[in-house]
Design a protein around this nucleic acid. Structure first.
Lengths: 219, 219
DNA sequence: AGCCATTGTGCAACTAGTTGCATAAACCCC
DNA sequence: GGGGTTTATGCAACTAGTTGCACAATGGCT
């Protein structure tokens, strides 16, 4: 549950209204935790209800009227608590890998273009991050805050670097592949051929699964 | 919407029951697209309703009775369609970065231990992947399927490598930080100091936000 | 004065994923 | 043959996130 805490952080950095938050999320926090204005408004309501934030006094706090929030002490405490509490890392989930594995069964036709497109997007993002790094984290900027911020930016840069390299590698790999190919082959198609009842503890060291000894079920 | 397609892929590789699928997800597909048995059963029901898969004929398909599914032609077509259709990459979302940014405001106390713990977890995962690579993708294994599978595994290895390196780097950075520090400082606390109405187009190239010229709002 | 684009807040409905629990058959073991 | 564990399927309720839309105020234009 990171969104409320991302909002608390942003509000501590600077009290803001819902729309201001939305925009700040779009251009900076959203790089690692995106949110729509809907989510933000709803969350602001909840946070206010829980006594973590409060609306700054305004003249006419009506609909269509800007309403800014600031963090209350309880909110700051909650944020500190959450930040220091242990959390499990979430496994990396990406549809591209699912598609790649699907392609191994139904063929790679069409996938290549999209990989190429993703590569371009990631290159652009990488360039943007590097631009930011050059502009904001030159020598001299090394207060504690700057260093932590920089660390986050470095993660972004490294991740985009990973993507560009991996995608480039994937694309060269594709060129060496029988075109559109791999449409089937090797998949047992109904008949109870190699596996049957002996699932679970067969041949090698531990976890075979797709029959035929293929490495299909591990990576 | 990757889960139904991950299931179709798995079923094409080998017809399975719900629980078998759950296990296969646990140990291989789940590395990049995890799913609980609940999700899988629900999705199987849906896929069957849509005519993409069907239950293999069994004697007593009652509760507590194994029920295997296989993919129908329509399912294979849908999978091929989905695989080749363009999709947007999802932004990387990770609570750790939110916590790091929060730590820049409320202090780093307690975070370090958890970073250390994550490091250990990622090291373990990396070792596991490398083990799999050695076992399953040695020389010789280079059919089209193998190459695609290997590509996915490489992504896992590279990602875990990124994490271990980044976390190690973060931890050394922490050591050089004023202990537990950075508890506040620099956050404008209500008064309309530097920013005010001029949000949006101030000093440098484009997007300052937290006042004071700090790089706070970009990375 | 009338119109319309922009700014800002918000409801409602939906999709995806998680958690906790219920239940039934099979297997095993004494 | 009774009792506990394992295997297997599933319902219900919840949380998080997305999408589509409604509507109020404001400011500029003409």
């Amino acid at each position: 549950m990171s969104l409320p805490h991302a909002i608390l952080t942003a509000l501590l950095e600077k009290p803001s209204s819902g729309l201001e938050l939305t925009r700040r999320f779009d251009r900076s926090i959203g790089y690692f935790w995106s949110a729509t204005h809907q989510q933000i408004y709803r969350e602001l309501g909840k946070l206010e209800g829980e006594g973590y934030i409060r609306a700054l006094p305004a003249e006419r706090p009506a609909r269509g009227q800007k309403k800014s929030y600031e963090v209350l002490p309880a909110g700051r405490e909650e944020l500190a608590r959450w930040t220091s509490a242990p959390q499990e890392p979430r496994p990396w989930r990406d549809a591209l890998f699912v598609r790649l594995r699907a392609a191994a069964v139904v063929g790679t036709t069409g996938l290549e273009e999209d990989l190429q497109r993703h590569l371009t997007l990631h290159e652009r993002q990488l360039a943007e991050y590097e631009e930011i790094e050059k502009r904001d984290f030159g020598p001299g900027r090394d207060s504690a805050q700057d260093r932590l911020q920089h660390l986050i930016l470095r993660a972004g840069i490294d991740l985009e670097t990973f993507w560009t390299q991996w995608l480039r590698n994937a694309l060269t790999e594709f060129e060496r592949l029988p075109d559109g190919g791999t449409s089937d082959a090797g998949a047992p198609d109904g008949g109870a051929s190699e596996g049957g009842a002996s699932e679970g503890g067969a041949s090698g060291g531990g976890v075979p699964d797709a029959g035929g000894g293929a490495a299909a079920e591990r990576a």
